[in-house]
Design a protein around this nucleic acid. Structure first.
Length: 212
DNA sequence: TAGGCCATCTGGTCCT
DNA sequence: AGGACCAGATGGCCTA
């Protein structure tokens, strides 16, 4: 399925061009994913530390309590300055739990994005950068629109062919009347009578593609 | 070095 | 109350 040649290039790949930056930026993302999967987690408790430790089910590396400094937060007071009921340790524990949940949620989101990338026709290869998140979403949107358009054209073509078939049978299927009133006319010989695509031409229609 | 992309933390809001 | 979701902030990594 993942074959770009099967996809009309214009609308689809224009995104890849406009998001050219994402293609090299995404390599870093792929590397991050590899680190995520295997590398040892960063243990310094830092908002930006790469504390990804494998799958999303049990990653607790950001939750290392030994690096937590309670004095840096305001665990004992709420936003009004009142003393809260929970002890700092309990609050910290709650915060770590929330963080872990959020991390898991984001990992699930990334897994879903990976799944989306796997079904989008673009060059999947180790030498090609992984699509960025935004490029993945936009590419997927365009791909869906194109598939819908192709499906619609196919339906019209099938309907058109069914109509032509009625010319060659004594009994028109589904009670359809003959499209072409002239005996002996067929698709190949009467391209000027193509009415399957009134709104324009179609790559799926031989008449349209044969027209000069 | 700037810009793009990303992971993570965090606080807020909404829902069950 | 707890969980899900969201957006802002922060800082690291990579490439041009």
């Amino acid at each position: 399925m993942a074959d770009l040649k099967s996809v009309p290039a214009d609308a689809y790949m224009s995104l890849a061009q406009s998001y050219g930056q994402t293609f090299y930026g995404a390599l870093r993302g792929a590397e991050a994913a590899r680190n995520y999967a295997g590398g040892p987690p960063a243990l310094d408790f830092h908002p930006s530390s790469r504390d990804r430790s494998g799958d999303s089910s049990d990653d607790q590396t950001g939750d290392d309590e030994d690096s937590f400094d309670p004095t840096k937060s305001s665990p004992s007071y709420d936003h009004e300055g009142k003393l809260t009921s929970k002890k700092p340790k309990e609050q910290r524990s709650l915060r770590l739990s929330i963080n872990a949940r959020e991390r898991r949620r984001m990992h699930d989101l990334n897994d879903a994005l990976d799944g989306l990338r796997s079904v989008i026709p673009y060059a999947h290869s180790p030498s090609v950068r992984k699509l960025s998140k935004i490029a993945t979403l936009l590419l997927a949107k365009n791909y869906i629109l194109m598939q819908a358009q192709a499906l619609e054209e196919m339906r019209r073509l099938v309907a058109y062919l069914n109509q032509g078939q009625t010319l060659n049978s004594s009994v028109a299927p589904f009670g359809q009347s003959s499209v072409y009133p002239y005996p002996g006319t067929n698709v190949a010989s009467t391209p000027e009578k193509c009415s399957a695509f009134p709104a324009g031409t179609s790559n799926l229609c031989k008449h349209c593609t044969d027209k000069p």
